[in-house]
Design a protein around this nucleic acid. Structure first.
Lengths: 226, 226, 226, 226
DNA sequence: TGATAAACGAGACGGTACGTCGTGTCTTTGT
DNA sequence: ACAAAGACACGACGTACCGTCTCGTTTATCA
């Protein structure tokens, strides 16, 4: 996971947008306690009340903070939640020693994929993780700019590791050379994402194990594999 | 597509929920002109302004209708949009004569899948179709009940046709017998859905053609297919 | 006193001002209970908390009314207070039977003026009357348009009665014919107003009695009056 | 006029009020440049924007000063403005050589009063003078403590000079001995004040000339003066 | 065919939240 | 230690919509 839990020099997105171009607050003087309290309040409220019922006002009240302190540093509740969630994901993805999660490579591609997908299933079933993650996804669906930001900051680092592992598998011959690793990864990950996002089916370890099998060996008959 | 453009006997969901148990309006006396105007206004506003900026008040104003006429028959703007979109999808999915769309079966599974996925790509790139579809998806992500309703009324009829075609393919030997057609279909459809929903990549005919190939024959080397 | 306590067809001042020209609410559908509750709340809060600490939000809360209901019909808390105060003044100025107050004319001008000014002193010493009256005056000092409105709707009707009485006195010979009744009235009324508004001195019956005497007979020696 | 333009030892009123009893700043180390800049900014903003739209923040910004520097030495924008206005009045009331204005005594009381009142009319018609004066008056109307402070520091010195001149007139026989000079002065000054403050009429030299006449010789007929 | 009851358009209402502004306090960083 | 700068908790602003609630006014069965 990127975004280690240091003070975080995220500049206010107002800088990039800016029509009236507010003078841009001084990040050095920022109150770190408030920032954290806002993160925590946002995550808690989304988990407890749902994203829709979560309001900027509510976050401010729960964090013991003035509304303006939120608007000074973020431009919407979605931005607040994204930053809060990146922090949460960083904390969850790390081993206790602080090293970020790394994609396993035991030499057995299928096994490695099963391991990682099972771990993802577990995360998606954890309400504290799932509620804000859903909220971010939903916001991104309807707001392309925000969606791309979510992808870049949250999703891409994860998917990049799949891509690397699949490239390694191409070197060892476990995956055909002609295959585009990007599309390959989607075959594995997207079905799980769809079931979770759209409520089209249950998500279990058995399900992801099957996904790995189907994706690697195809749906068509395979006479060579007895 | 279900929900043909007849008067539509959709009963107000208030009946099912209902604590105060409103007397339940008389669907027979319903004004069909208003119903249609509301559909059109909802679709137009979502396409023009975005889902977030679309309000019940705005729909009513644009449709030249009182707000209460909306609240009498629907319980939220999401419900209005779902019904409006079902109508739109029915109109688009139908051949001019009025027969609903049917999944092709030329005997060549790969070709049939490519055909259907290419058509889906075209739909997803049509803004008039995509904007409300995205809105419904986003709402469903964050609201499980509504999500299941969207799946049942909108998605499932489509996916069911994939499932039937894949079962037919199992009979002809084009797909292994052990394969779960539900999961198989997800391998084909979910990557496209993810790219579209999450803005993780471009969606093109070339892309879906590749998906069909990868899904049918797998990512691993296939020595039998010279 | 004008403005008897009938429904009051005061049209929203927005009509006169109006840049964005809001559609202008329909006064016929106005809720009279809310209107009264807002009047009462405004007067009570100004008396209890002071004008400065009285807020539109506070008035709305105390009246059990949405803020928008205030902004729909008035353009500022000052306008609310003016209307509320006009109602109060009408109620106070009336004899119990409902007839508005009339300036006395006993034939003795000095006595009549003393009577009326003493009554005014009593009003100005009544906190329930004085607090909103002060607030309106202060607002008018600093905002010329509003000041003129206060004068026209509140002050002028009162001063007009002085003017009439003085004209009558000119007919009977109690006041010189060359005297401008407008200025004459100011000689009597303004000193009291100044003491009250600017806190430059006490206001008592003895004080106003003296004012009447000085104004009628002048400061210079009067050899004719033994 | 008191308050000559020396450093001004006005101690922060916080000392007198004070619950938390702030350490009380050291007036000796005070920055005189900032003090002046604050005065100028306050007067300019009130004249340009109006009292209501003038804010402490705006004054600080315009003066190139930190907000705290204002709060350190004054307790409200009204206090700032009062002090600034006292300085302005001192500068305007002085002859170029620095001697403060003195009430004329030519032996002709009526002429002297006309002279002074005409000068006052001119001041009241000067926007740079009138805007802050109005603001102070309005604040005083609604805030008794502040009102008394305005009277004591600003009004009383002026009115005192009227009182002295009227006493002198009693010695020469131009004013009856039984007349209270305080009330007498109000007869002359209050009508002008009221017209100006409450926007009840125009203020002109002709008007004040008439006031002097009416006040001195009364409204009633005066058979002795042919 | 006229009575009558519902749906309808309009929009006022009590509310909640928005995003902004100003207050008065506190903290940081030079002087 | 004062000062410039400005972040902060707080509270009010005036606006936008929410979902409910009247108001007349159609409209469309049934008497």
């Amino acid at each position: 996971m990127p975004n280690s839990p240091q003070p975080a020099a995220r500049k206010p997105s107002r800088t990039t947008a800016g029509k009236p171009a507010r003078p841009a607050p001084d990040a050095a003087r920022r109150n770190e306690r408030s920032r954290r309290a806002i993160h925590d309040a946002a995550l808690a409220l989304v988990a407890e009340e749902g994203y829709r019922r979560t309001t900027v006002e509510g976050i401010a009240a729960r964090a013991g903070v003035g509304k303006q302190t939120i608007y000074r540093w973020w431009s919407s509740k979605a931005e607040v939640l994204l930053e809060a969630f990146l922090g949460l994901a960083a904390r969850m993805g790390e081993s206790p020693e602080g090293a970020p999660f790394a994609f396993p490579d035991t030499g057995d591609l299928a096994a490695d994929l099963r391991t990682v997908l099972r771990a993802t299933v577990d995360e998606l079933l954890d309400p504290a993780f799932a509620a804000p993650a859903r909220a971010l996804a939903a916001e991104g669906v309807v707001n392309a700019d925000f969606g791309r930001q979510v992808v870049a900051e949250l999703l891409e680092p994860q998917l990049g590791r799949y891509e690397q592992r699949l490239r390694a598998a191409q070197d060892t011959g476990a995956v055909r050379l002609g295959v585009d690793p990007r599309i390959a990864l989607e075959l594995l990950v997207a079905p799980l994402a769809q079931r979770w996002l759209q409520h089209t089916g249950e998500i279990t370890h058995a399900y992801t194990d099957r996904l790995v099998d189907y994706a690697l060996y195809g749906l068509a008959p395979r006479p060579d594999r007895a």
